[in-house]
Simulated scan of single mutants.
Amino acid sequence: MFGALLVLALAAGCSRQDHGMGPAQQAGKAVDEAGDKVAEGLRAPLEKADAAAKKLAERADQERRQLAERTEDAREKIKDATQEAGRGLQKATGKVGEKVEQAGEKLQDAAR
């Protein structure tokens, strides 16, 4: 692409038009103008890509925050369930203890 721009610039520099610039200056001007056109043509797509990247980063950050909230909620539910299971186990252990005690008393009564 640069070669094509250089050829165009040289062709512009070889003409007989005299604007107070020599052939090298005219070629330089043509290269500068071509570069400006290319830069202008790339500016809009680059701005769109930059905006899309920012939007994607914001979305990823939002998703991360939501995941952290859901994780914390799950931890709380697990903690509550564990505590409830512990209380249930204590009740069951107490009931088993009572039944064992009753069975022991019955065995003692039967042995007398």
Rank of each mutant, 00 (worst) to 15 (best):
E84W: 05
A92P: 05
A39R: 09
A53H: 08
A51Y: 03
A30I: 07
Q62Y: 09
R112F: 08
A111C: 06
A111D: 01
K54M: 01
L8A: 11
K95P: 00
P45R: 03
T82I: 04
E58Q: 13
D61W: 05
L89I: 10
D50W: 09
A92N: 09
A49H: 06
A44C: 05
E84T: 07
A85S: 06
Q62F: 07
R16C: 07
R16G: 11
D32C: 13
G104W: 01
E72M: 01
K37Y: 10
E72F: 00
D32H: 13
P23H: 11
T82K: 15
G28F: 04
G28P: 01
R112K: 08
M21Y: 15
G28K: 04
C14G: 11
Q25G: 12
K99G: 00
L8W: 08
Q90T: 08
A34L: 04
E40T: 10
A30T: 15
E101P: 03
L5D: 07
A11Q: 13
K54D: 03
A49E: 13
V7A: 14
R75P: 02
A85V: 03
K37L: 15
T82S: 09
K55A: 06
E76W: 01
G94S: 15
A60E: 12
A39K: 13
Q90S: 08
E84P: 04
S15G: 14
Q17C: 11
K48D: 06
K29R: 15
V96W: 10
D50L: 13
E40D: 04
D73V: 01
E84Q: 06
E33A: 15
E101K: 15
A85C: 04
K95E: 14
A81R: 14
R70V: 02
V31A: 14
R43G: 00
K54E: 10
L89Y: 14
K37H: 10
G86Q: 12
